Amino acid sequence: MSYPNDLLSTRAVVKPGLYAVIPAAGLVNNVVPGIEGCKISIVASPKLGAGFVQYVVRAGQGGKTTAAWAKEDRIEAFLYCAEGGCRVSVQGETRTLNAGGYVYAPPGCGLEFAECLEGTVLLLYKQAHIPLKNFAPRIHWGNSNDIPYRIYDDMENVFIKDLLPLELGFDMNMHILSFAPGGCHPFVETHVQEHGAYVLEGEGVYLLDERWMTIKKDDFIWFGPYVPQAAYGVGRGPFTYIYSKDCNRDVPL
């Protein structure tokens, strides 16, 4: 940290209960018991209006958990390695995850990580699982680099990957959406699902509610149910982000 080079300014826009755009430049560090050697930014929580909690974790050499994270009975968790690498354990199974690697931990399992490389960036996500009779989720490991893109909604300049199984046992998914320059959503979406999105590469412009905003790598975006949203990819390369989605459940009354 040092003195600013110019007048203080930000691209952050936060509308609690509706949406938020949080650039990396504005993130602050939080102390989270059970995690050491890391800079942790809590980018989404119920205080914002989100139905989940998400961290952006920037690990130093050897960053680790000292206790299982998100091990509460009803809590399911997801870890995605955006950059670098580390060792991750879920219920006694340990794997090395490099950039693109991820794991889903069912309710009550929690997850641990250790031996982080310097410069590792992890996304940690947790939410309360909604059980469904006769269906249950399971531990799921993967690497997004091993999953081929498929064309999104018949548009050959927009591509998507599903990171978790499309099964009723899972009440959430994580997707990677990528726009070639000039690619866009086929229409302005308005839906019950909320999203938390972390930009992996490129630049775009994003419509949230009634406002178009410039977005770039390392930005975090959240928007709540029924907020109109759409994006265009701009710049010279792909505009790509990983985002969460609640799914496979009816709405309780």
Rank of each mutant, 00 (worst) to 15 (best):
F187D: 00
Y19M: 04
K39L: 13
I139D: 13
A230L: 07
L253G: 04
F78I: 06
R11S: 13
P131A: 13
P228Y: 09
H129T: 06
H185T: 12
V88H: 09
G100P: 04
V32Y: 03
L163R: 02
V188Y: 10
F170I: 00
A99V: 01
K245Y: 02
D246T: 03
G26Q: 13
T214H: 14
I40S: 02
E203V: 07
Y243A: 06
K71I: 07
G84P: 04
Y241A: 04
V103E: 07
V199M: 14
E203Y: 04
N5W: 01
S41G: 08
E201V: 04
V56H: 00
Y243T: 10
T190D: 10
S41Q: 07
K126R: 13
A70K: 07
G108L: 03
V57F: 05
I35C: 08
G169E: 01
E72I: 04
A231T: 03
N145E: 00
L117H: 09
F170N: 04
E36L: 06
N145H: 07
P181Q: 07
Y243R: 08
L123C: 10
G233L: 14
V121G: 00
S2C: 09
K71H: 11
P181S: 02
N134Y: 10
G224R: 00
A67C: 03
I22E: 03
A231E: 10
T214E: 13
K64E: 10
